[in-house]
Write a protein that binds this DNA or RNA. Structure first.
Length: 586
RNA sequence: GCGCCCGUAGCUCAGCUGGAUAGAGUACCGCCCUCCGAAGGCGGGGGUCACAGGUUCGAAUCCUGUCGGGCGCGCCA
């Protein structure tokens, strides 16, 4: 619809150019928007105001000439010039009727587009360290990333969804050590658990399965394990030195093979838990990319070498530094440590290098906002490698703060005191969780009200929208009892009978849906869909209260049934994009 | 100290790449089921768009500064 109107304006501009009213070489961008106020028509253009300078004319005079040059169209009933020089388009009834027909014909496909023209985009999201279950903070990234990916897929992009698994590094060693210490406890050893260890119950579970598998075969006396290990923080020592020494001791005592086994047991069971959680949440991935594989395949080494060859590295204090300040970063970064090990950042450079090498047209990272300081250095690395850093978009998701009974719920991963995503899902349900997470734009701090999400009342926007869908389904279910049936063909022929203001409002909003989806995808803003659905549901509920659908007159009845069927379809499509179900009854 | 994000109704938030009289929900008050689900609808009060400058036909929106809140500034991941 919007596109068609833009075309009309474009032709009018061409006509004025040929008449000499506008410079022939002028580059014109057609501005056309939905109006806020129905009195201003359906669409408005500020073209005359934008072009008044080059045309050396008053905005309203120019608007007059533009309107005179507009080609006729059956969709447009009239055009007005208003205010400082807006050109307002009033659509005719046939435009609305075309929308209904389109929705019913396209069904689930209504709202989809080929905007992306088949370009490929990779979306990486969540990518939480597999050192524990996903918590509610990860939930927002999961819901947001999944919805952005789905929106892009709906608008014609080829989407690849990926989870980056941090299966290497010190945090994983701390997990493995935590598991082993709990295992020793199960063997009957008196273990003083390190301050820096992972204390969650899931560590006990993993230790238990280690114990089931091996019995006491991996047991070593506590005195032996803690031999030569410096004091922990509660004993006046340093928690970092303490845990690092413990990791070394575990490696030595277990041997490389057994240590790796313990490590992998922890990794795999947590990863399995994460995958299940996300699957149940309706969040699917095409690939789980292993950080370890980057090192093992030599990709990290190659990335560092490429930086060296490009001349952006130097040696200092025995370490290799990347001169990221050359690309606007605030300080240079270490890529290879003094001890010869590459840093996490080096892996990340390699990973992003790999992403771009895979040839995606666009790469999107969804990160927690606490990682925002990381963006400049990753982009710097890509530039240094000679890649186009603009192909990478980093979307930062702010934290969600949980409220229960008006109180803030406090969390900390290390101490094991956190609300898991699973607990949240079980408490409020997947639908409410998915919806609430994307209800706010990602850079907005979010207050997640558990009591509201749980409430099955009008306060809860999820139920409000789902209720509209269920109501329509309910109406349709009752037709047989009244000896009626829906005849779409008759409905289509009688759409001209839909003359009520409520019907007009509903039809206009149905026609907006494709624009909403395209805009939400383009700007990575799923919340626009959530807000739109709220409005659409409101239009329907208002209509429902004001008029009857199951009436005697078959012409009007079927026309109205066409309209509410189309509404039901759009609600279902929209909720589907958000990963929320559209139930026929509640 | 430096950097990023955010300040809009009592509360939670929209406000589309600058556009016409700043909008929803919630809370509060008052109405509406012999009628397809009242998990609904209608009406009412409630705002210095944090503050001060600037850009222009026009600023909640863009720029600069100030104040307030969140987060980040490791040879951690």
């Amino acid at each position: 619809m919007k596109h068609l109107l833009s075309q009309l304006l474009y032709e009018a501009v061409q006509t004025l150019k040929s008449q000499g009213d506008l410079p022939a070489d002028l580059d014109v961008e057609i501005g056309l928007e939905r109006t806020r106020d129905r009195r201003h028509g359906d669409f408005a253009s500020n073209l005359a105001m934008v072009l008044c300078k080059p045309a050396r004319s008053k905005p309203r005079d120019l608007a007059d000439r533009l309107v005179a040059a507009l080609p006729d169209s059956e969709l447009v009933s009239r055009v007005e010039i208003a205010g400082p020089g807006f050109i307002n388009f009033f659509l005719g009834p046939s435009a609305c009727h075309a929308t209904i027909a389109q929705v019913l014909e396209q069904g689930e496909r209504y709202g989809r587009s080929d905007f992306g023209k088949g370009k490929s985009v990779q979306v990486e999201f969540v990518s939480a360290n597999p050192t524990g279950p996903l918590h509610v903070g990860h939930g927002r990234g999961a819901a947001y990333g999944a919805t952005v990916a789905d929106l892009l897929a709906a608008t014609g992009y080829r989407v690849h969804r990926e989870y980056y698994v941090n299966d290497a590094g010190r945090q994983m060693d701390i997990l493995a050590t935590s598991v082993y210490l709990r295992y020793l406890d199960l063997c009957g050893e008196e273990v003083t658990f390190p301050a820096n260890g992972y204390k969650g119950d899931y560590v006990w579970d993993i230790a238990a399965s280690l114990h089931r598998e091996h019995g006491d075969a991996l047991r070593h006396a506590v005195a032996e394990v803690f031999a030569g290990v410096p004091a922990d923080e509660p004993q006046g020592g340093d928690r970092e030195l303490h845990i690092d020494a413990l990791i070394r001791r575990c490696r030595e005592l277990l041997g490389a093979e057994r240590y790796r086994e313990t490590f992998d047991l922890g990794l795999n069971s947590i990863l399995h838990n994460i995958r299940t959680d996300l699957e149940e949440f309706g969040v699917h991935y095409d690939d789980w990319f292993s950080e370890r594989s980057l090192t093992e395949s030599g990709m990290v080494e190659r990335a560092v070498q490429r930086l060296e060859q490009a001349g952006y590295t130097y040696e200092k204090n025995g370490a290799t530094w990347f001169r990221s300040t050359d690309f606007g970063d605030e300080k240079d970064r270490v890529v290879v440590r003094e001890n010869g090990q590459s840093t996490y950042f080096a892996s990340d450079i390699a990973y992003h290098m790999n992403k771009l090498e895979r040839g995606y047209d666009r790469v999107i990272d969804v990160w927690g906002a606490d990682h925002h300081g990381y963006v400049p250095r990753v982009k710097a690395a890509l530039q240094a490698l000679g890649d186009d850093a603009d192909r990478l978009d980093v979307l930062l998701v702010q934290f969600a703060v949980l409220y229960r009974g008006g109180e803030k719920v406090q969390m900390s991963t290390r101490s094991g005191e956190f609300v898991t995503l699973r607990e949240l899902r079980h408490e409020v349900g997947n639908d409410a969780a998915r919806f609430f997470y994307v209800m706010r734009k990602c850079e907005q701090h979010m207050d997640f009200d558990l009591d509201l999400a749980k409430s099955q009342s009008s306060d809860n926007p999820v139920y409000y929208i789902q209720y509209a869908h269920a109501r329509i389904a309910s109406v349709l279910r009752q037709m047989p009892d009244k000896g009626m049936q829906w005849d779409a063909e008759t409905g289509t022929q009688n759409l001209h009978l839909l003359t009520e203001a409520h019907e007009d409002a509903l039809m206009v909003n149905l026609s907006r849906y494709p624009e909403i989806v395209a805009g939400a995808a383009l700007k990575h803003e799923p919340h626009a869909v959530a807000h739109y659905l709220r409005e659409l549901a409101n239009d329907f509920h208002t209509y429902y209260n004001a008029h009857q659908f199951l009436i005697e007159d078959p012409a009007l009845r079927n026309a109205r049934l066409n309209l509410i069927q189309a509404t039901r379809q759009v609600i279902a499509n929209g909720l589907g994009l958000l990963g929320v179900s559209a139930p026929d009854s509640m």
